[in-house]
């Protein structure tokens, strides 16, 4: 990974006191002990016997099912959040309406609500027994809790604000001049969005989607409650990690964790590679 010689835009040479090196060392030690070393151990555990444990894991039907289910649910949640996120961001930035500030504050709520509370809340409303809407929905043949819709909802809930948080500042920054210019040149709303707005927010959108994806693939607490955690039916990858570990199949637990961790680290790396480019483009 390349390293800039001087701070971009400001190449002031400064004396480096001994404190600089103390701070640097302290920060590196802290991050290595807290994150880097532990995370790297997962890889070490997984490859302790070469590719053996990865191979065993991927031939375990309950694990492959869990991985597939995880991907299906995450993709659905991300699609929903992307559509909702783009629409909501445009509404929050481009329009003024009563309750706008309240809505904008509430949107952030899912980030600070415990996944367990999210699960509980969904069960209280959509649970088949005793939920507010659950029994009615199930009478019409639509099961939410202990089924895929509930798991998608739980996943969408916890990653709801991620796209919006990326888009809102970018939309505010680009302003409405370009959109108005497009309008005065004859472009309709759809054309303006596709040709002008979307290219301007493209990288922020990709960034938000990647973050949502990482968060969705890794959701645990909320999904554990709404899914019922039935192996081979509603068990996702993270739930499978818990079960395998507690069933003393630690190699499988580590290998599955390794796969999940790889995806999330890959997401972070993609995002960190994208970020400087977005800033430069603006």
């Amino acid at each position: 990974m390349g390293e800039p010689v001087a701070a971009p835009g400001r190449s002031r040479s400064r004396r480096r006191g001994p404190l600089t090196y103390v701070f640097r060392l302290l920060v590196i030690t802290y991050l290595v002990l807290l994150v880097a070393w532990p995370v790297s151990l997962v890889a070490k555990e997984t490859f302790a016997n070469g590719l053996e444990s990865l191979r065993t894991t991927l031939s375990d039907p309950s694990v492959t099912f869990a991985l597939k289910l995880t991907v299906i649910i995450a993709v659905q949640a991300v699609v929903i959040n992307t559509v909702f996120g783009v629409g909501m961001s445009l509404l929050l930035v481009r329009y003024r309406f009563p309750g706008r500030r309240l809505l904008s504050a509430l949107i952030d709520l899912p980030l600070s609500v415990s996944p367990v509370v999210v699960g509980l809340a969904l069960v209280l409303v959509y649970g088949g027994r005793g939920g507010w809407f659950g029994p009615t929905l199930e009478d019409h043949g639509f099961q939410v809790i202990f089924a895929t819709p509930g798991m998608v909802m739980a996943t969408a809930f916890v990653s709801l604000p991620l796209v919006i948080r990326e888009l809102v500042p970018v939309l505010e920054e680009v302003g409405t001049d370009q959109e108005q210019a497009a309008k005065s040149l004859g472009a309709n709303a759809v054309q303006t969005f596709r040709r002008i707005t979307l290219p301007a927010i493209k990288w922020a959108l990709v960034y938000g989607v990647v973050l949502s994806l990482a968060r969705s693939l890794g959701e645990f607490g909320a999904v554990k409650i709404v899914s019922g955690n039935f192996e081979g039916q509603t068990q996702t990858a993270t739930l499978s990690v818990e079960q395998k570990y507690q069933d003393f199949q630690q190699a499988t637990a580590y290998a599955t964790s390794f796969l999940l961790a790889s995806v999330s680290v890959a997401c972070i790396v993609v995002v960190s590679l994208l970020r400087p480019r977005t800033e430069e483009k603006r």
């Binding site: 994150v35 532990p38 995370v39 151990l41 997962v42 996944p115 973050l211 990482a214 968060r215 693939l217 890794g218 959701e219 645990f220 607490g221 990858a237 993270t238 739930l239 990690v241 818990e242 570990y245 637990a253 580590y254 964790s257 999940l260 961790a261 999330s264 680290v265 997401c267 972070i268 995002v271 960190s272």
Partner: peptide, 14 residues
């Protein structure tokens, strides 16, 4: 950023 994206169950295992 890893702790933000890493599944929490994996974080525990890690």
């Amino acid at each position: 950023d890893i702790p933000f994206a890493l599944p929490t169950i994996v974080a525990g295992l890690v």
